[in-house]
Design a protein around this nucleic acid. Structure first.
Lengths: 336, 336
DNA sequence: CTGAAAGCGCTAACAG
DNA sequence: CTGTTAGCGCTTTCAG
């Protein structure tokens, strides 16, 4: 069927080995022979069988990308960044959507490991402290890079923002806009959720403002949860005049709830999200948010992983922090 | 390193073949032996080496999913549907984002074919008439299913809506809402773009309404293009009172342009999009749209492909049409 | 510089 | 029912 090295070798009257070496630019082969072989390869449109090659080299040039939710455009953008960097190097990216479920994630990672991926990039849905999966990866010497969500205790490579800073940045902005009763719709119990909450607390504390428990509502990561959490916050008395939301979808849901209640954004309640999803600008009220440079995260993680896969000895864990960037749109603009 | 069949065989004092057969539930093996083998496999946590297996079976259990844009949540949803169906069958899905570029698509498909995927699901960015890629797939006997965008002339499996019907449905709805000057922001020159335009024309013709060339603006597939196309439409005189947009992102951009011009949606101009992206409900004006059952498309395509990959002889091309469903929200509601 | 030998881990085909 | 033989297409090792 397809052309094999053997065919080319016989065709040219050389040995199979000569062909193999010529293909891979091995040094111990004469220029004329190499040229002759390469020329014939091109003519016959020879394509190396990577399966056969993998069998002996034990490398697949497959990389797993494990994400909580592809529908969240933040992660779709990360995926683009990863693919853009890795494909030119000959890697194929296999995406796994875990649906923000730690158990599913563990199974998916196992599948990818059985698939013999050369490395993994993971935005983990593991609750903090659940390190088994990563320990297993280390035992098996499979290089991996965490993105977006750092795992306390994991001696792993990480690329993403410092969530404390992100939370503090968003919250401080609300304070500057004149908000005095600032609430937070918090995310899941992963690093991002926990860190942003911590940043929110830190910013309030720094201003000597009180952190009221009833002002911390539990959303998750989707717009429907933001909608519900906001309805709950609207019941408090006095109600908040500013809300920092875990992410943009949650913020979009929150805005919907506020408008339905007959209140105005930002006049009655100012809103800030996080993630800068690409449609933020098109929402009911254009959404203020904190940009995390999703594409850069993907690209940086890809570069880091590629370095790990190259080097024989695992490099010491690197943490690359991307500075969060405030993007002010209408949803929080109360002062000029 | 990892446990191999050979290890288990020696461990149990049977031949390698016995182990191999037991694993795959071959019939000619006694129940006791099978049990003994399987038990030991579990104990040693044996994982078959799929690369070695692929080498001889010539199947990789890899499926390529080729999409124009992962950021468009319609396609992200399709991807979820595909993965949900295919993963339980042991397939791994490899997603390729072509950026709506036919050339990139061709290269990506080539890469996937070299990767020896067992099959492909493609929402193609090829301009109509560009069939080479598909002919090559057929020559190589690689089963594939087209989704979302049918290709005229391709004798291929297809899952998606009839775009003519979709366009007619949206346009008729605008007519029913009392719009009399209906414009269209058209998409790229792929089946969806062409078909929706045709449906738009058909609906107008059926009502004896004139199709004015200046009412057909060329958007592409992103919100920025919708924004620009709408600005152009606003220059026409008289300006349209209803616009059917190629897809939801385009519609979102159009709404932005209208509001910025100081006009109201839907009172001055009613808008309908297509695709029912998940955030449609959260936009400036909640967006009326035509739902295409993205997840169902993904799942159905996956099932169809899986059938093709199973059967030895290629089944005759099947076309599965999913009925488009109108979702009316505020952006087009002018009458109760 | 070139090539022969050995084998990666598994399965298909057939022999006992 | 069990096992033997012969590869899949390639690379690694080592001898010419």
């Amino acid at each position: 069927m397809a052309v094999r090295m053997k065919d080319i070798a016989e065709d040219l009257g050389v040995s199979l080995m000569t062909v193999s070496k010529a293909l891979r630019n091995h040094s111990d082969i004469s220029q004329p022979t190499r040229d002759r072989v390469l020329k014939r390869m091109r003519e016959l449109n020879y394509q190396p069988d990577w399966i056969a090659r993998s069998m002996v080299t034990r490398r697949t040039y497959l990389v797993g990308l494990v994400l909580p939710d592809l529908m969240h455009s933040f992660f779709a953008e990360v995926a683009k960044g990863v693919a853009r960097k890795l494909q030119p190097l000959g890697y194929q990216v296999v995406i796994s959507d875990t649906g923000e479920d730690g158990e599913v994630e563990q199974r998916q990672v196992e599948v990818l490991v059985n698939r013999k991926v050369d490395g993994l990039i993971i935005a983990s849905a593991q609750r903090s402290g659940r390190l088994e999966m990563f320990q297993a990866l280390e035992r098996n010497k499979i290089p991996y890079v965490l993105i977006d969500r750092m795992l306390a205790g994991a001696e792993a490579h990480y690329v993403g923002v410092k969530d404390d800073d992100l939370g503090a940045l968003a919250t401080s902005h609300l304070i500057q806009q004149g908000c005095r009763r600032i609430a937070h719709i918090r995310g899941p119990a992963v690093a991002t959720g926990v860190g942003r909450l911590r940043g929110y607390r830190r910013a309030l504390a720094r201003q000597g403002m009180e952190v009221k428990p009833e002002y911390i509502a539990s959303g998750q990561y989707g717009d429907n949860t933001g909608y519900e959490a906001m309805q709950q916050l609207l019941q408090t008395n006095p109600r908040p005049d500013g809300v920092f939301c875990y992410n943009d979808p949650v913020a979009a849901g929150a805005i919907k709830a506020i408008l339905e209640a007959g209140l105005r954004v930002p006049e009655d309640i100012a809103i800030v999200g996080a993630g800068n999803v690409h449609y933020s600008d098109l929402l009911r009220v254009p959404l203020s948010t904190v940009d995390q440079s999703s594409t850069a995260i993907g690209e940086t993680a890809a570069e880091l992983l590629s370095a790990c896969m190259q080097s024989k000895t695992p490099p010491s864990p690197k943490r690359i922090f991307i500075p969060p960037r405030l993007v002010v749109r209408d949803s929080s603009r109360r002062r000029e």
